[in-house]
């Protein structure tokens, strides 16, 4: 046997440490640290620049071949529209809408554009049991109507109330939502129709990491103009569409209570239990069965033993 001296011990120890470090790094890079397509595109929406002209709504309607609206796009009475005490939302006829807010802090209204925020880790995607959603490397969350069953779990899961269902159709219903103009524009590196249509440059398109920098720059360079927060930088794990505002976000219709982590994180507690139940339950319950029915067997054995004993005793007595 080779003798282990001090030198070889140190050598081996160092080699092992190095190997462990390398392997560990490799492993951590492979799981958990998925960087959500770092080259993905994004848009920053500056609420202070939007004038509520609804050009983006019109452009979206045309680009996505949506039905002609009941109220034309130059009619601003839609800003007063209320349904169940709620302002307008996306539905099967509109992938994007603009709502007006009158925050008491300032003397003029603010307008907020609503569309799919194209989350880094979308709740619609992670909740879908037929894989109808895809997050593309370009940053869009797209939807495949060909496999959709119409269960509407994505609508329950979406923290921003974006996906809408085509309830009016009996034979071809589907989810209706903004797809970042993926098919017609984003795929080719072009900005979506709404961004191109905006006359106020309220929407800035670029790589997500770049537009995020632009947003931070604006906050830094014009002190007092914006609240020091970019909605969408961290909300539900980060979104491709982000917002700048001059008033607190809850005053202009944003849900500021959405979790900072991706929605799927709150489901993981359950998902982690599934393999445990699948593997432990069978053995456990068959074991219970054996234990529960053991009594009958023990009783039988005891009876046999007793019989044997009495027999032996009888024999002994006979011998005596």
């Amino acid at each position: 046997m080779k003798k282990l001296n001090r030198r070889s011990f140190i050598k081996g120890g160092l080699a092992t440490t190095a190997a462990v470090t390398v392997l560990k790094e490799k492993k951590s890079a492979a799981s958990g640290d998925f960087d959500n397509y770092p080259e993905g595109m994004g848009v920053i929406v500056d609420l202070t620049r939007c004038v509520g002209c609804r050009s983006c709504e019109a452009a979206c309607n045309k680009e996505q071949n949506l039905p002609e609206p009941e109220v034309p796009f130059d009619d601003f009475s839609v800003f007063d529209y209320m349904h169940h005490g709620e302002k307008r939302r996306t539905d099967e006829t509109a992938y994007t809408i603009v709502n007006r807010y009158n925050p008491p802090e300032i003397d003029h209204p603010l307008f907020r554009k609503v569309q799919c925020n194209h989350c880094n880790e979308p709740a619609c995607l992670t909740s879908c049991f037929v894989n109808a959603y895809t997050k593309t490397p370009e940053g869009a969350v797209i939807y495949n109507a060909k496999v959709c069953v119409g269960c509407r779990t994505c609508m329950v899961a979406c923290p921003f109330y974006i996906p809408a269902f085509k309830y009016s159709s009996a034979f071809k219903p589907q989810i209706m939502k903004c797809i970042f103009c993926y098919d017609t524009r984003l795929k080719n590196g072009e900005p979506p129709a709404c961004v191109e249509a905006c006359p106020q440059e309220a929407l800035t398109f670029g790589r997500r990491k770049d537009v995020l920098k632009i947003g931070k720059q604006r906050i830094r360079e014009t002190p007092g103009k914006y609240v020091d927060h970019i909605y969408g930088e961290h909300e539900v794990g980060g979104t491709a569409w982000m917002y700048l505002s001059s008033v607190p976000f809850d005053k202009v219709g944003f849900d500021t209570h959405v979790p900072k982590e991706p929605i799927i994180n709150s489901v993981k507690e359950f998902l982690a239990m599934v393999p445990m139940v699948l593997t432990i339950w069978p053995g456990l319950f068959v074991g219970f069965h054996l234990l529960a029915t053991r009594k009958d067997k023990v009783r039988e054995m005891e009876k046999e033993a007793e019989l044997k004993k009495t027999k032996e005793n009888d024999e002994k007595e006979e011998q005596a």
Binding site: T126, N131, A132, N144, V147, V149, G150, C151, Q174, V267
Partner: peptide, 27 residues
């Protein structure tokens, strides 16, 4: 009654699988 496309009930089983979703497990 509730599914938008009831004729696609077997889809999560055989056509397009999303095994990481809770509803997949339910189905």
């Amino acid at each position: 009654i509730d599914l938008g496309m009831p004729w696609r009930l077997p889809y999560p089983m055989f056509v397009s699988l999303g095994p990481a979703a809770v509803l997949f497990l339910v189905a």
